[in-house]
């Protein structure tokens, strides 16, 4: 009896990886999924923070995909290792801070390590030639194979017929004839195949699989780097970029102002890590301070924070400024008017 061949599939949670996996499963290959958490993945986060999303079903699309396929899913925390990919991408960034080509190469490289450790035979991805301007072009397909070290162990079932034969095809583990020849930006063939497989309710993320393709998010990330002595970051920093209004009235500090109850509650968990401001005389949001403030800055910050509370139209409100050493200053300030808060301060 021939050996049961095993493949690991990079599951992003999107339609392409779902389909690619199904195509290979249908050829009798044992497939398990792997999903890499870089800290920037679209999954979960903001939905969990903002109260207004409370009624929406929160689901992790990678887990959902695995469940549809009936395969195991291994989620791997690559936050630390990913920093180097993001900070020093050999192939540069896409439209925003997304280093897609380096990112793909990195993930496939991790998958190569994984198949060696776990005695699997090859790797599959949902890539399609010509689908994305940066990472999924005909010229970049071999780059990913080379730089990841996967070589011909990397099979892309959705466009395999447009690419040179890989080892699983040559060895007859999979039948090349049953693989596909998708190419270009159109999503129609994928949608037709999804229908054929009876997949419903799959995720259709706009832009990409992570926040780095988002302009607002990228701007905040760049601003954070520009105002720190090092570009290093922690997961908490990445979380903070997803919540609140970000206002930088001065180079030395940035304010993160909660936009609604869910965010305020989430931000409360960070009161030991950041100085914070809240109103004593009125209801209002929680404001975290990233950076250091002089006394003058504290007054400025309190006046801005007061703008977002219920005392915004009053002559005077009482604001508490809480520092990391546990000290607290109570300031009586006049809330800034909308016009006084400069547009340029918003990150």
């Amino acid at each position: 009896m021939s050996k049961q061949r095993k493949a690991v599939s990079l599951i992003s949670g999107g339609l392409d990886s779902l389909l690619a996996t199904k195509v290979i499963l249908d050829q009798g290959i044992h497939v398990e999924g792997i999903n890499f958490f870089t800290g920037f993945c679209v999954e979960g986060h903001t939905h969990a923070i903002r109260k207004q999303d409370k009624d929406k079903v929160k689901r992790n699309n990678a887990l959902w995909s695995a469940e549809q396929l009936g395969i195991k899913l291994h989620i791997v925390d690559v936050i630390e290792e990913y920093k180097d990919v993001l900070l020093n991408p050999k192939h540069g960034y896409g439209q925003n801070m997304n280093p897609c080509l380096d990112c793909k190469g990195f993930m496939v490289k991790k998958a190569v390590e994984w198949i060696k450790e776990n005695d699997f035979d090859f790797i599959i991805t949902g890539e399609v030639v010509g689908q994305r301007p940066m990472s999924q072009r005909k010229e970049t397909m071999p780059i990913i194979q080379q730089e990841s070290g996967a070589g011909d162990l990397l099979l892309r079932p959705l466009c395999a017929k447009n690419l040179p034969e890989t080892l699983p095809e040559r060895e007859g583990w999979v039948d090349r004839e049953k693989l596909l020849d998708f190419s270009g930006r159109t999503r129609k063939p994928q949608m037709a195949l999804a229908k054929e497989f009876n997949f419903e309710g799959y995720a259709t993320p706009a832009g990409g699989c992570c926040f780095l393709t988002d302009k607002n998010y990228s701007d905040k990330l760049v601003d954070m780097w520009q105002h720190r002595s090092s570009r290093d970051y922690e997961l908490d920093d990445l979380m903070m970029l997803k919540v609140g209004r970000h206002i930088r009235p001065n180079d030395n500090f940035k304010m993160i102002v909660g936009r609604e109850q869910g965010e305020n509650k989430f931000m409360e968990g960070y009161r030991k890590m950041y100085p914070y401001i809240h109103s004593i005389s009125h209801n209002g949001p929680l404001t975290l301070i990233d950076g250091t403030m002089s006394e003058e800055d504290a007054v400025l910050a309190a006046r801005i924070a007061a703008r977002f509370g219920q005392g915004r139209d009053d002559e005077e409100v009482e604001m508490a400024v809480n520092y990391l050493d546990g000290t607290k200053t109570i300031l009586k300030v006049k809330p800034m008017s909308k016009e006084e808060i400069l547009k340029a301060w918003y990150v």
Partner: peptide, 17 residues
């Protein structure tokens, strides 16, 4: 956990594994 999303995700992970 404090993230209510875990109520979906952890059981989903358990089911598939």
């Amino acid at each position: 956990c404090t993230d209510p999303g875990a109520l979906q995700d952890v059981p989903a992970w358990c089911r598939i594994n």
